[in-house]
């Protein structure tokens, strides 16, 4: 009494075709907010990546600035270079549009890299804690608890301060971005570790993990090949939302003056410069970088919210 042999399987579809056919893409297609947020985020990312081609001026090169262009109003020609300044210029004659493009590139790089750093750290430690258990788990999770009781910005400031003390002064400028990435990354790993540990505790008792253990497969491959793909879903949602938070954190640090050097202004640095001129009438120096930051963070945040809802089967 054998079951009838099932009909031959349909030919497997390509990755792209499967993605376009997926529930996730359908949910994206039918959500106007997700499309809007996705478009804005994609355009801003693209513009930031192509800053070198699109920007009228290399905002990071002090030699390209003309002091005579200082305080040019939006949509006016500069006195020195005779160029058109769409969003105006700051005190040094730096074109605000170019500064925003270069600055958001820096903000995005720092944001993505720090999220990647905290993701690797948090997911790794969370997997280890959940799978191994015992003292290692207790140690990792208590460190995470302690860290979560401090504001993230405080931890980033602490890391930044310690790193500056360790690095020789003449290398401060070139190391600033790396230090910033590590500081923001270190202040955010605990959330990933907690989420991953919780899912790992559920997954590790499922029989497919037992089946792998039965084959004598050692813990590291079991964690990476079996558990990781199954605990990654919620983490990606957190990572998307945290990307916006990391960009804001970078802006906050730069606003406080501990972030990137003044010669390579990020969005936060531009806002710090701009606020000095707010009450003397040069409003554009502050307003446009701030708007760019809000738009970038908001669109990424909305994308994260959509992703969270789309991946939550209970809300479908």
């Amino acid at each position: 009494m054998h079951a009838p042999v099932p009909a031959p399987a349909a030919p497997p579809k390509g990755r792209l075709a499967r993605f376009l056919d997926s529930d996730l893409f359908y949910s994206f297609r039918t959500s106007p907010m997700a499309i809007l947020a996705g478009t804005v985020a994609a355009l801003m990312t693209l513009a930031a990546l192509l800053a070198g081609l699109l920007a009228p001026q290399n905002a990071f090169d002090p030699a390209a600035l003309n002091l005579m262009d200082g305080y040019t109003k939006p949509l006016e020609q500069g006195l020195g270079s005779q160029g058109l300044f769409v969003l105006g210029a700051d005190a040094q004659g730096r074109d605000i549009l170019s500064a925003i493009l270069f600055g958001s590139r820096l903000s995005l790089v720092v944001g993505v890299a720090s999220v990647a750093f905290s993701l690797v750290l948090g997911v790794g430690l969370g997997l280890l804690a959940g799978y191994v258990g015992g003292r290692i788990e207790a140690l990792i999770m208590r460190i995470a608890d302690i860290q979560l009781s401090f504001p993230a910005i405080l931890i980033a400031l602490l890391v930044f301060g310690v790193a500056r003390g360790l690095i020789p002064p003449h290398r401060h400028e070139e190391m600033a971005v790396v230090v910033l990435i590590i500081a923001i990354g270190l202040s955010n790993w605990a959330q990933y570790a907690r989420t991953v540990r919780a899912s790992t505790l559920v997954e590790k008792n499922k029989d497919y993990v037992q089946a792998a253990r039965l084959l004598g497969i050692s813990p590291l491959p079991v964690m990476l090949k079996h558990l990781l793909p199954n605990v990654a879903g919620p983490v990606l949602v957190i990572a998307t939302i945290n990307l916006a938070l990391a960009i804001i954190e970078e802006a906050t640090l730069s606003y406080l003056g501990v972030g990137v050097p003044a010669t390579q202004p990020s969005l936060g640095t531009l806002i710090r410069f701009g606020q000095q001129y707010l009450f003397s009438g040069e409003w554009w120096i502050l307003l446009f970088p701030a708007l760019a930051l809000v738009l970038l963070a908001l669109s990424i945040n909305l994308l994260g919210d959509w992703l969270r809802d789309a991946l939550n089967p209970k809300l479908r």
């Binding site: 029989d207 497919y208 037992q210 089946a211 199954n230």
Partner: peptide
Amino acid sequence: FQDPYASLNPR
């Protein structure tokens, strides 16, 4: 194993 929904890695 007992539960064929848990004994195969869904990914």
